[in-house]
Computed example of a mutant assay.
Amino acid sequence: MSLAAQIKPISYLKSNAAEIIKDFATNPEPLIITQNGEAKMVVMDIHEYEKQQETMALLKLISIGRKEFEEGKYQEADAFFSEMDKE
């Protein structure tokens, strides 16, 4: 389904909420809700939302790791494993 078909006015959300929920079972694409012709919110399937949140968390961890690496806040693998063997 095209992105344009997934943009609906707030009146559509108000009158079709149950149908929108049912449709997520077959089409999990987010639904953009407009008010006065302007995008105001996104309605999405909970499973898609959870996947998106997991992806964002992983990207944040990668970003933190990259920053720490650039700042020299890392340990060589051999030294790390030697430390782990001592414990």
Rank of each mutant, 00 (worst) to 15 (best):
T34D: 03
D45N: 12
K14S: 12
E50F: 01
I7A: 06
E83A: 07
D85H: 14
K14C: 12
P28N: 06
D23I: 10
K40C: 02
I62F: 12
T26W: 03
P9L: 09
E19G: 07
A5F: 05
Q6N: 14
P28T: 03
Q6M: 10
V43E: 02
G65Q: 13
D78T: 14
K8W: 05
Y74K: 12
I20E: 05
Q75Y: 04
N16L: 08
A57D: 14
A79K: 14
Y74I: 09
P28E: 02
L58P: 03
E71G: 03
E50W: 00
E29Y: 11
E48I: 10
S82Q: 15
A5I: 07
E38T: 14
I33V: 09
G37T: 07
I46D: 00
Y12H: 12
E76Y: 12
M1I: 02
E71L: 09
E19Y: 03
I32W: 00
H47I: 04
I7S: 02
F69N: 09
Q53S: 03
T34I: 09
E70V: 06
M44H: 00
I7K: 05
I20G: 02
R66K: 13
E29W: 04
I32H: 00
L61Q: 14
D45G: 00
F24V: 03
M1D: 05
F24E: 02
E48T: 12
K14V: 13
L59D: 03
I20S: 01
A17L: 15
I64F: 08
A18S: 15
E83M: 07
F24Y: 03
D23Y: 04
G72K: 05
V42H: 00
Y74D: 14
A77Y: 09
G37I: 05
T55W: 15
I20N: 02
K14Y: 14
G65I: 10
R66C: 05
E54I: 01
T34Y: 07
M56G: 04
Y12I: 08
M84I: 10
P28Q: 05
M56Q: 10
P28V: 01
R66N: 09
I20K: 02
K14G: 07
K51R: 15
D45P: 01
A5G: 10
D85Y: 15
S2R: 13
A25K: 15
M44I: 08
H47M: 06
P28K: 04
K51I: 02
E19D: 12
I32C: 03
M41W: 01
E48H: 13
K67M: 09
S63C: 04
V43A: 06
E19Q: 11
R66S: 08
I64L: 09
E19W: 05
D78V: 09
I62K: 12
E70H: 11
H47P: 00
G65D: 11
N27K: 01
D23E: 13
E29H: 12
M44N: 04
S11Q: 10
I20W: 14
S63I: 08
E38M: 12
A77L: 15
E71S: 06
P28Y: 02
A17S: 15
Q75K: 08
L3S: 15
I33D: 01
H47F: 03
M56E: 08
I20D: 03
S11M: 03
A17P: 07
